[in-house]
Simulated assay, not measured.
Amino acid sequence: MGESPPGDSQVDQSVLRVFNTLFTRANPSLERAFDVEHSSTVDPTSSLASDDKALGDLATSSTVTSMLLAAADHLDALRSMLFEAKVLYIRAPYTLLRCALENASVAVWLLAPSNRDERIIRRLRWEWANIVDQYAAFELIKHTPVRSKDDRRMHLLALARTRGLSDDQVSAIAGRTIGFGQIVDLAAEENALLDKATNRVLWSMCSGISHGRQWPVLPLSEHSRVAPIDDKRVWVRLSISEKELLDIADVTLLTFQQGWHLFDQRRRGHGL
């Protein structure tokens, strides 16, 4: 199969109306993301303040707001594409939604557990994943950082031991790094409106599109045969599947809103 370049397409007005409903529902969460300095105060008597105290310079509150802001950036870019540029590219919307879903899912995953020890373990695991990626990049450019990778690993383990975590819990922190697929799964479990398996499939297709995989192209697009190339191949003209796009946008915005909901729960006073 060959793909005939379609350029971009105008957005159907009925689709715009549905997107307008979705973005209107999520707008309070989007607006506060861009005013995070004034909308993310953590009460010193809250559960989130206690988490931050246990983590020192690895405060969960700042990590979560950073993830939600990153999600908002990508969602706002999609909103601009739809309502300002008024075009729908075949792949770019899925790439934007994938990034937004991953970042929002991390926020939900970090905040969801009712048990503080589990929230702290997840924050430390997330930091270890960041360290692994960072030092892999350092090795590629032959950069020697001030602090070694092992020094930073030992810092994470020291925080865990100070918390009184078990040996198994401590060893899990700097073990196998957690991936976005697993985080998306765990975040979906925290929202009664989402289905874990459906969430994973939608995320996987967005990820595939982002990396140029062929398998999700047809499921995520409308397509029509244009002309034969030879006796085994044809040119196909593609346009975006508005239904699939709306489904993925709905899942992403629900996860984004859930992240802010959990953040508000944890940052208010007298929490656990």
Rank of each mutant, 00 (worst) to 15 (best):
Q169V: 09
Q169T: 05
Q169N: 12
V170N: 02
V170C: 04
V170G: 01
S171Y: 09
S171W: 04
S171I: 10
A172V: 11
A172F: 03
A174S: 15
A174W: 01
A174V: 09
A174Y: 00
G175D: 10
R176F: 14
R176E: 14
R176L: 12
T177W: 12
I178K: 04
G179K: 09
G179E: 08
F180V: 13
F180M: 07
F180H: 09
G181S: 14
G181R: 12
G181E: 02
Q182D: 08
Q182Y: 01
Q182R: 08
Q182V: 03
Q182S: 10
I183W: 04
I183V: 11
I183C: 04
V184F: 03
L186W: 15
L186P: 10
A187C: 08
A187M: 06
A187W: 03
A187D: 00
A187F: 05
A187K: 03
A187N: 03
A188C: 04
A188P: 00
A188L: 00
E189L: 10
E189W: 02
E189T: 14
E189M: 08
E190P: 03
E190G: 01
N191E: 10
N191A: 15
A192H: 14
A192N: 13
A192D: 15
L193Y: 03
L194Q: 04
L194W: 06
L194K: 05
L194H: 05
D195T: 07
D195R: 10
D195L: 05
K196P: 03
K196F: 11
K196I: 08
K196S: 13
K196G: 13
A197L: 13
A197V: 07
A197M: 14
A197K: 15
T198Q: 08
T198Y: 05
T198W: 05
T198N: 09
T198E: 13
N199P: 05
N199L: 15
N199F: 11
N199I: 11
R200M: 08
R200W: 13
R200E: 07
V201A: 15
W203P: 00
W203D: 03
M205A: 09
M205E: 07
M205R: 15
S207P: 04
G208W: 11
I209M: 02
I209D: 00
I209S: 01
I209A: 00
S210E: 05
H211Y: 13
G212C: 04
G212I: 01
R213C: 11
R213L: 15
Q214D: 09
Q214L: 14
Q214T: 12
Q214C: 12
W215H: 11
P216V: 01
P216C: 08
P216F: 01
P216K: 02
P216N: 06
P216S: 06
V217K: 02
L218V: 08
L218M: 10
L218R: 10
P219E: 08
P219T: 06
L220V: 12
L220F: 13
L220H: 08
L220Q: 05
S221D: 04
S221H: 12
S221K: 04
E222M: 10
E222F: 03
H223T: 00
H223V: 00
S224Q: 14
R225I: 10
R225A: 15
R225V: 08
R225Q: 15
R225P: 13
V226C: 09
V226H: 09
A227H: 14
A227D: 15
P228A: 07
P228V: 06
P228G: 05
P228S: 11
I229L: 11
I229V: 11
I229E: 11
I229C: 06
D230W: 02
D230A: 00
